[in-house]
Design a protein around this nucleic acid. Structure first.
Length: 645
DNA sequence: GTAGGGTTAG
């Protein structure tokens, strides 16, 4: 065995450090000290790096003292590692002191300062360093670090400017630069960056490809994103996860599942982000409920279920898929929670009509003195709205402004209009609109119009509709609400006028659909639909139900039929609403007692609401209907919305 | 020394 000197120790030690074997690195360092070998600056550099990765700052500071004692206080390599360590621990002044004491700075020293200051939010100071750098040291890394800093601090415009300037000065962007600048959406065009990436041969790179596909997704172009994904040569876990999330974001559950399965086939192990993405995909209204549960089980088996991003995804998935109990179970068991977890469960309870429970969760947040934001209060106020607690809602709005100093946004005013509007206090709702510090959005007017329809206030409805139509002349929902309002009071003349206006403006009504999942398959129904293979049995079931309903004293409320036809025909129209077809199919397609889940793209009508309540008793079934607005849990003749929706 | 996946309302 040859003589071992500091160089042989250090090369082994550096080898460990470069392969992320931090513990081995530190053990070897201790052995060196025990054996009386004096470390050199390279040894220190590797050791400090390992300590930084492990978050062992205290030990790092001790090593810093050793560095100075050994006379390497100004050595470039050791100092660079120290700068990095101090920045990672947020000790900006110490990092700066090391930098200032150096006599021989290289590009890494300068770039570490730029990157460190940027990450700590000190963009002005980062830019000062960046601008005094000489041409020899200011390289592509410096530019990329600055650009990244601006983006991380929400200064996208400066980032884009710097990117342009960089090219002008003849500095060629590298793969890091492209992956960074592509996150500036919608500040840069993915098409343009794509062209540059092709020219410079970066499209096969996983990081550039991933950033590019994500940029296309953010522009709503999943097809292009998918093409980019296919071209990535060695797809890593981040690329796979990004593609899955891409499909999830566009509501394409099947696309997401396809990629997830393909990934599993290729033997790639999912990580927490992959699970979070695929579970989010299963939160889409038409996704299979069973699929989500299976993924929950899989995530537990893979031990990723406690990661915050996974538990958050599970929480929203269960809530959106109508299973608020399981959502709360996930919330209860969460190892760590953030603001989003709390906001999710509050809004979940609100949407399901469990306003009191939403408020209980909020009270708990208050007791624990947790941070809240505007979204928290949107949940809280809408909990009051769906429970009919107008005064409480106003109180929470005031708390938000006075105690939490949260500036109300359009969404909050929209909630307030909804709060008063649904409670029938239309004048108060109008006052909110008048007192808002900015002009009301289309959404606000739509909310007022919907409330006017419920409470049959023609005058207010007409006013809201005029505003709404002037803001969104091509949106069919505006006209449909108005025609429904006229129809509900039997004013066929006005209704015909609106229909004519729609024709003139070439606005088409959106058809009502309902979905139901039976034996892991999703079935779609249109009103009066006869396309289902078991159509005859479905209508027979409806007929049977109709007799039982009449026997139970049910009277159809034909004011919900918005066509001008005779009464008998109206009853027939009501009995063929898409949700009833879906329920009838669910009843004949599943064993007695099985709960049913229906999703509808429009709001459920008042007559269907009454009928579903009765069906829940007659057939002894729990029925969950998610309409375009909220969840209705029908059980034993009652609905969780308390007939208030 | 610089980079790329996620979550909240109506």
């Amino acid at each position: 065995m040859g003589a071992r000197n500091v160089v042989s120790w250090t090369s082994l030690l550096t080898g460990y450090a470069q392969n992320g074997l931090n513990v081995e690195t530190l053990k070897l360092f201790l052995r060196m000290l025990v054996e009386g070998i004096k470390p050199n600056p390279f040894t220190f550099s590797a050791v400090i790096g390992a300590l930084t990765d492990e978050g062992m700052v205290e030990a790092g500071i001790q090593v810093h003292t050793m560095v100075i004692k050994n006379g390497f206080g100004v050595a470039t390599f050791a100092s660079n590692s120290l700068i990095n360590m101090y920045f990672k621990s947020g000790m900006i002044r110490d990092a700066r002191a090391v930098f200032d004491s150096m006599t021989d700075r290289n590009a890494v020293s300068w770039n570490s300062m730029v990157a460190g200051l940027s990450k700590c939010g000190e963009m002005d100071n980062a830019f000062k360093i960046f601008s005094v750098m000489s041409d020899e040291v200011r390289n592509v890394v410096s530019w990329t670090a600055m650009i990244s800093g601006y983006l991380q601090n929400g200064m996208a415009e400066q980032a884009v400017n710097l990117f342009c300037q960089m090219s002008k000065e003849g500095i060629k962007p590298n793969d890091f630069t492209y992956s960074t600048i592509l996150t500036a959406q919608p500040g840069v065009s993915p098409f343009e960056m794509h062209a540059q990436a092709i020219k410079r041969n970066y499209v096969k790179s996983p990081s550039v490809g991933t950033a590019l596909l994500d940029a296309y997704v953010k522009r709503g172009n999943v097809d292009e994103a998918s093409k980019v994904f296919q071209r990535i040569e060695e797809k890593d876990i981040v690329a796979w996860s990004a593609m899955i999330c891409g499909y999830a974001q566009t509501g394409d559950t099947e696309g997401a599942v396809r990629i997830f399965v393909q990934m599993a086939k290729e033997g790639i192990k999912p990580n927490e982000y992959t699970f979070s993405g695929i579970i989010n995909a299963c939160a889409a209204p038409t996704a299979g409920v069973e699929q989500g549960k299976q993924l929950h089980a899989w995530s537990i088996k893979s031990r990723f279920n406690n990661a915050l991003c996974v538990s958050s995804a599970l929480l929203t998935m269960y809530s959106k898929r109508g299973d608020i109990e399981s959502a709360f179970e996930v919330f209860k068991r969460q190892r760590e929670r953030d603001l989003v977890s709390w906001n999710s469960i509050i809004s979940g309870y609100a949407q399901h009509g469990y306003g009191r429970k939403a408020l209980e969760v909020f009270e708990e947040m208050q007791r624990q003195n947790l941070e809240m934001d505007g979204v928290t209060f949107i949940g809280v106020i809408s909990a009051c709205t769906h429970t009919g607690l107008a005064n409480e809602g106003q109180r929470y709005f005031d708390i938000m402004v006075k105690d939490h100093h949260i500036e109300p946004r359009m969404e909050h005013y929209s909630c307030m209009v909804d709060l008063y509007g649904r409670a029938g206090m239309l004048v108060k709702a109008m006052e909110i609109i008048k007192e808002m510090p900015f002009p009301a959005s289309a959404n606000v007017w739509r909310t007022l119009l919907a409330a006017s329809c419920i409470h049959r206030n023609l005058e207010m409805g007409k006013l809201a509709a005029d505003k709404l139509i002037s803001l969104q002349p091509q949106n069919p929902a505006s006209y449909v609400l108005l025609t429904n309002m006229y129809a509900s009071v039997g004013n066929w003349k006005e209704r015909a006028k609106v229909r004519k206006l729609m024709e003139e403006k070439k606005v088409k009504k959106v058809a009502g659909y309902s979905w139901i999942e039976v034996k892991n398959k999703t079935y779609t129904f249109l009103a009066g639909d006869a396309s289902h293979p078991r159509s005859n049995q479905i209508y027979a079931k409806l007929e049977e139900l109709s007799c039982q309903l009449k026997g139970a004293g049910y009277q159809p409320d034909t004011s919900y039929v918005f066509q001008d036809v005779d009464e008998e025909h109206k009853e027939a129209i009501l009995s063929q609403h898409s949700e009833r077809l879906a329920i009838a199919f669910g009843l004949i397609g599943t064993p007695p007692g099985t709960p049913l889940q229906i999703v509808k793209n429009l709001r459920v009508c008042g007559d269907c609401h009454t009928v579903i309540k009765l069906i829940s008793i007659l057939e002894g079934r729990d029925i969950v209907v998610r309409d375009s607005n909220r969840f209705h849990h029908f059980k034993g003749g009652l609905c969780s919305c308390g007939d208030y929706w």
